[in-house]
Design a protein around this nucleic acid. Structure first.
Lengths: 189, 189
DNA sequence: GTCTATAATGAGATAGAC
DNA sequence: GTCTATCTCATTATAGAC
């Protein structure tokens, strides 16, 4: 992984999270990075190759962040708070969102590989939330009952939906408003 | 409003809900409708004009459907069930979503007028949910406590997020899974 | 209101020199 | 690994005839 390649992934990720997969071009990357379009094709022959590389790295980093939240938290409730903060922080900067939320809207535009990777990332995140809910129930930091697999999907939906609402309204605080009741419902710390 | 214009709005709406605002072109419309691209520009000079017309009509129809749900429901709980069904039905057909969910991801691509109309539509829907929550509390069909304005935003986020998850996973049932706990939490019919 | 014709621009991508 | 040059195609949009 060269310096140029990681700069391309960084910028590509930023643009995808801000404008979606169809919302940026190699010309945008070239302008910002300071090389020519043809040079980008050397690193990522097709735009799909770049998209897949960005998504792959993003999914790995997300899983990594979730693992770190787990090990840094004393209770399941704390871990879920950390997760909420993760999604909140993602929208504060430059109108970005979680890549998984943005790409979901682009589902019909991206190719099959990206689609499957995206679905897998969502399944992984939901599974992690589910585990964390169970942990929180055991340590009595979370009060939520009901099927944990369904609760986990509900929480993920609310997190991604809150990002969507906040972006559409042009105000990050909408995220907080749409998530307050979730925090209240979960917490028992 | 001529026949051709309403066909253009219908098809435009379908495509926007399926692929986003940037995900279709006048060529797509022309092919399907059976006229030439230039003829479409006669009805909607720019693509933004078309997008705005679609969004405007969509927002009006959505508000209308919500009003009808209100008057057809005996309790607030019934009205919210009807709303959930509305969002569920929207994704069953041909991979579409609520236009408001799709456009939120496109926020950076659409122009200022559309952005403001979108934000207004979301505010209206949240306000309607809020009213319905209050109604349901009064008639004892809804058990949810907490600030109704925040609860309403949370519910809207969960509905839109569940559509997002279902589309990303390629399976409408994911919507049901992500919404089950909401139904359980609200209902007391 | 629809057509043909044609801009004008930008997209993704390739060939081949350095 | 980056460049210039070029290709091909799609996109939005306009002019003007019918």
């Amino acid at each position: 992984m060269t310096e140029t390649q990681s700069r391309l992934l960084d910028l590509g990720e930023a643009l995808m999270r801000k404008r979606g997969f169809g919302g940026f071009s190699y010309a945008d990357l070239a302008r910002e990075i300071g090389i020519r379009k043809a040079s980008i094709h050397h690193h990522f022959p097709t735009k799909s190759d770049l998209g897949m590389a960005v998504l792959d790295r993003y999914a790995d980093q997300l899983a990594d962040k979730l693992r770190k939240i787990s090990s840094a938290s004393r209770t399941g409730g704390q871990a879920l708070d950390g997760t909420i903060k993760l999604y909140r922080d993602a929208i504060d900067h430059a109108g970005r969102m979680c890549l998984c939320s943005t790409l979901a809207a682009d589902t019909e535009v991206i190719d099959r590989d990206m689609r499957e990777r995206l679905a897998q990332a969502n399944r992984d995140t939901a599974a992690w939330i589910q585990e964390t809910l169970l942990t929180g129930r055991r340590d009595r930091s979370i009060a939520v009952g009901g099927d944990p697999a369904l609760e986990a999907k509900a929480i993920l939906a609310q997190l991604q939906g809150a990002q969507l609402l906040a972006r559409a309204g042009g105000d990050p605080q909408i995220f907080d408003q749409a998530i307050t009741t979730l925090v209240a419902r979960l917490s028992r710390h």
